[in-house]
């Protein structure tokens, strides 16, 4: 009886210790390339939804643009196990009613915080930078903000795949020479991407 009790207790201990040990090992395995100094390279691709243009006084108007497409490349460095800094280069194209292409190249400096729910990660980030906007013969450079949120499944220590949402706020400012300030607008775009992160 005593022997049986000891066997049961041992079995219970083994059963309860082994999974937590495996879990810890899995944790360490999935996140072992997220140490300070490690880097990540993110490739994103997906549709861009031109939402609306907004005057600085408030009124909004349709963009008249089709659903576009975007391709982005993001390189980050882990400052802590959850916090990374980096930069993002993206190309966005959308088509006007007369089949002319609006082409945008946002270039941002980006801070991202990763909430880890093993084996998943939810990165929340904010980028700030400039966007090169070209349409017909006009090319502008404009300040932008890009808040973002994503959800990733960590496949292994090197790769994560998931979805990412980037909201692009493009502050197109004019000061009256040669274009009047009344034509200043805030462009609102939503980028929904399938993305893959390579950690190294």
């Amino acid at each position: 009886m005593k022997k049986s009790l000891l066997t049961c207790l041992f079995s219970f201990l083994v059963l309860s210790i082994l999974p937590s040990s495996a879990w810890a090992e899995t944790q360490a395995y999935l996140y072992d390339h997220r140490l300070p100094g490690d880097r990540s390279l993110t490739l994103e691709i997906g549709p861009t939804f031109p939402l609306f243009f907004q005057q600085f006084s408030g009124p909004t108007a349709s963009t008249n643009l089709s659903v576009g497409a975007n391709l982005g490349l993001d390189i980050d460095i882990y400052m802590t196990e959850n916090f990374r800094l980096g930069g993002e280069l993206r190309g966005i194209a959308a088509v006007s009613p007369n089949n002319n292409v609006l082409f945008m190249v946002p270039l941002t400096f980006k801070a991202t915080y990763d909430f880890n729910f093993s084996p998943f990660t939810v990165p929340v980030g904010l980028g700030a930078g400039a966007c090169f906007t070209n349409y017909l013969s006009a090319t502008n450079i404009e300040p932008i903000l890009t808040p973002s949120v994503g959800a990733y499944w960590n496949v292994n220590s090197s790769w994560s795949v998931g979805l990412n949402l980037d909201y692009l706020l493009d502050f197109q400012l004019y000061f009256g020479n040669p274009i009047p300030s009344s034509e200043s607008r805030i462009g609102n775009f939503l980028e929904t991407d399938a993305s893959a992160i390579y950690h190294f």
Partner: peptide, 27 residues
Amino acid sequence: IAFVLPLIFLSSCTYGSQGIFYGLEHE
């Protein structure tokens, strides 16, 4: 890349006859 490249491209800005987003609004 974040700070120097925009300065280089800034010099290549070419304004049209109206704001880009404004023009799209009215296209």
